[in-house]
Each structure stands twice: as C-alpha cells, then as structure tokens.
Design a protein around this nucleic acid. Structure first.
Lengths: 199, 199
DNA sequence: GTCTATAGGTAGATAGAC
DNA sequence: GTCTATCTACCTATAGAC
C-alpha cells in the first residue's frame, strides 16, 4: 500500500532527534529554534510536532535516553571480582561509553537547567544511581583494604569529573587512541585510590 | 552638584554585570533577554546599552575578567620551592579561587560556544596559559623524579577537570568546609601524581 | 543616564488543506 | 505526515525626549 506523498514515518523521527542533539550541543538549547531543526531535517517547522510534544520534550527525551543507555550499559558490563577489577571495569566502561557520545555528554551537563522541575528530578535520580555504583566499588575496596580513601563520596565525584572531562579535549583523530586514553586514565585512577599495584 | 534625575553611574554598571552573570549562569546566555536583566537591575532595557555595546560583549567581558583574575591570582600565589610544594600551592589556589565563583566557572565552561571567533580565541589562549602553569609543575616533578607520570599533558587536564568539578556539587552550607575540601582533594592530587609522601 | 516608543525580525505552537 | 499560513508573543537594538 502506497504511502501518502511526503510521508516518511520511521525516517524523519530519528533524524529529528539526531539533528536536535547536534544543534543543541553546538549552540545551546535556547539558541536553537524549531525552524532551524526542521530546516536541517528537511521538513517544515510544523511537521516536527508529529514527533515531539514540544521543544522541552525533545531535550528531555535525549537526556533520559542517554542516562538509560548509560545505566543499561553498566549493567551489561557486568562488573565482578575484587574491587580493583571492578574499578578497572567501571573506568574502562565509562570511557568507552562517553568518548563516542561527546555531544550527548556535553548536553547532559549543560542543559539540565532547561528541564522542568519534574524532568530534572528524573535525570538527577538516574545520575545519582550511576554515581552510587562507583561509590559502592570504592566502599568495598576500602572495607577490604585494597583502597585507601578518606571520603568515598568525594572520591567518587572526583573520579567521575576526571573521567568525564576527557570529552572536553578528546578528538577521534588526535594523538591518542581510545585505548591509549583508557590505559592512561586507568593508571591515574588506580593511583588516586592508592590501590596496591600487584598485591 | 546635583545629578540628573535617575542618574546612577557607578552603581548601575556593576549591577548590570552581577545580574547578567547570575542570570546567564542560571538559565543560559541565549535564554536570558536584555529585558530580564534590565528588570532585575531596575532599569529599562535601553539603559543597559550605556554599559555594554551589546549582549555578546556582556558575556565576553565576564569571561575575560574571570580568566584575567585567575591568572593574576595564580601569579600572586607566587608558587616556589620543590615541585611537590608548588603542586600543593596550585591545588589549593585553584580550589580557593573557584569555590566562591561557581556561577562564573559554570559560565566559563558552558558558554564558550556563544563567543565570536576572535573572542573565543582570546579566552582559549588564557585558559591554555593557565593549564601550562600546572603542566610545567608536573614536568619539573617528573624531571626531579618526585612524580611518576606517564603523560603530563593528560595528567594536567585530568587534574584540572577533577578540581574544577568541585563547583558542581560544593555548597557553602554543605557538610564540608572549603578547607576540608582542599585538604581532601590535595590528598587525591598527591596520590594521582604518585608523589613520594615524605621522601 | 534613563526613559518611552518603536523598528524590524524571530520565536513556539496550532489550524486546516492535501 | 507534511505543507502553508498564521496567531501571539517576544527579541535586540536604536532614536530622541528629558
């Protein structure tokens, strides 16, 4: 059965999301107009409203999808074993997840303030849950005397900031491969927690 | 000599800067209108143009002032002695400077993309100069075998990201004082560079 | 230095034809 | 599902009175 002329369900939808992500990251949520997004997708502005209730939902869906993928990815990484192994697994997963998604990461940190109160609460809860995964590893490591950390909450936030900061300077065509970056940062992380090297 | 009615030179100017800073940090540069700023300052929108050429200059002046103060503050900190002492001085200065300026720090990271090309280049140059100060300390420490670091450029960026990230969670009325935060982070930094504790 | 008024343009979102 | 047209509201920046 032939579609109506100009109908592109299943094609336009993802393109709207991709385009919005790129433009929001590049210019900021507030600076991007629905008309700009539509123009890059190749439709008229009105047509966007077949895919999103409004501009705010477009942002929220991107951020929520990101956090859901992040948590799901961490679950799939299935970290096991002693604290040091789990910390290495977390570090490498975090880098592996974030490096190919620099736009999304930037958006997730910069545009939280443009979310409605309830949407913000949802994202903040997911982020906190992610942080708690790392903190649990650190607490275990301290309990087993593998790590020497004064304040596991602070160390958690410090490590995540350090690792996420990679997205500010990393370029796929730069001097370091993703693997080299992961290796270097794992070295920094291991020493930060004062892990016994080969106990 | 009586001023003209409604004239407040020297009062309105700083208030415009302060208000713009607060609103830009809260809602984003593009999301804040000149009318909003004017309303909070207590003047009409047109009056703002006695203090700034346009909206973009308002942002640039804030960011440039921040970087100038940062570099000047680091000079005043006058770091001397062996690498470990200078690293401690840098760490404590960075925290001391950034914690009371959380809005400005947020703005400096988030709104670079709203600067014109030449304004951006100016800010980027200043930031690079600041990073180079830390990198020089790390390189010295490696040369003297006080530090064990594979890649000093990476370590520089990692440490700055870690320290600047404090502004994302620190609250003046939180469980930790500025001094306690500085102490905890200096511990993390010292171990990250694998400094010999009391050699 | 501040005001009012306004020029000239763009914003988000909706209605109804196809 | 997409289009055109449009509503209503807001934007930055300027002009000229006081």
């Amino acid at each position: 059965m032939a579609r109506k002329q100009g109908s592109h369900a299943g094609i336009t939808g993802p393109r709207v999301q991709d385009t919005a992500l790129r433009l929001f990251a590049q210019h900021g949520f507030a600076a991007v107009s629905m008309r700009q997004i539509a123009a890059e997708v190749g439709v008229q502005a009105g047509a966007l409203y077949n895919y999103t209730a409004d501009k705010q939902s477009l942002l929220f869906d991107l951020l929520q999808g990101n956090m859901t993928d992040l948590m799901g990815g961490l679950d799939s990484a299935d970290l096991k074993g002693p604290p040091l192994s789990r910390l290495e697994g977390f570090t490498r997963f975090h880098i592996r997840y974030h490096l190919p998604r620099r736009d999304l990461v930037f958006l997730s940190y910069m545009e939280l303030r443009n979310l409605s109160e309830s949407n913000y609460a949802t994202i903040a809860r997911l982020r906190r849950a992610y942080e708690d995964r790392l903190e649990a590893i650190l607490l275990d490591g301290v309990a087993s005397a593998d790590f020497a950390i004064d304040d596991c909450r602070i160390a958690t936030l410090a490590l995540i900031a350090q690792l996420t900061g990679i997205t500010n300077w990393y370029r796929p065509d730069g001097r370091l491969s993703e693997e080299q970056v992961a290796e270097t940062y794992w070295g920094l992380v291991r020493r930060t927690v004062a892990a016994r090297s080969h106990a």
